[in-house]
């Protein structure tokens, strides 16, 4: 339906999944696409599992939440449990390899399950850009937004920080590239995911 791509990003509070989702949605909007970003929000101001739902399409988007995502990313053990419900037979399910998972921890349904070393890779750069690495992974897997638009949205969102600490700009762009690279690696030259 109009190249609709649905992504759920889940992590621990403080891992920056909401910020990453917001940048992605902003990038899509700036490209003239329809975009809906909805944060899950519960009682806690901090802590707990944080889930962001993003949908991008060329056409008007229907319901703001979805039952099954095209890509679901879980960045902590608890986030894996929390996101089982969003993984269906067509879902590419992504988890971070920094924590131990047994087969029964994984969602019962998925088209493909991919483990990525996002935490590890981010450590090589800076743990501060972990969420941007993950954002790169989503961009690489889905091509829901263009590389250029993502860079622009990143600049727009974090520009005020880059002004103060210019090396952060380069760091964030490298994080984005790292994430995209990881996604390509994971897909092993295969097709990117289009719904």
């Amino acid at each position: 339906m109009g190249n609709l791509v649905r992504v759920a990003l889940a992590g621990e509070g403080g891992q920056g999944v909401q910020a990453a989702a917001e940048i992605l949605a902003e990038a899509a909007y700036n490209e003239g696409k329809q975009a809906i970003y909805i944060p899950n929000f519960g009682l806690e101001q901090r802590g707990g599992v944080s889930v962001a739902f993003i949908q991008v399409s060329d056409r008007r988007i229907g319901a703001p939440k979805f039952h099954k995502g095209d890509v679901v990313v879980a960045l902590s053990h608890r986030a894996v449990e929390r996101t089982h419900q969003y993984s269906g037979p067509d879902t590419v399910y992504v988890y971070d390899t920094s924590f131990q998972l047994s087969p029964e921890d994984l969602p019962p349904e998925a088209a493909r399950v991919i483990g990525i070393p996002a935490v590890e890779k981010a450590k090589e750069l800076s743990t501060r850009v972990f969420n941007i690495v993950v954002m790169g992974v989503v961009v690489g897997l889905t091509e829901m937004v263009s590389y250029e638009a993502t860079r622009k949205a990143l600049e727009h969102k974090l520009g005020y920080k880059f002004e103060k600490t210019p090396e952060l700009r380069e760091l964030n762009f490298r994080a984005l590239d790292t994430g995209i690279e990881m996604a390509r690696e994971a897909l092993k030259g295969g097709e990117v995911i289009h719904a």
Partner: peptide
């Protein structure tokens, strides 16, 4: 509703 309150859309 809460979805409309919190979501972003053009």
């Amino acid at each position: 509703d809460g979805y409309q309150a919190k979501m972003r859309e053009p």
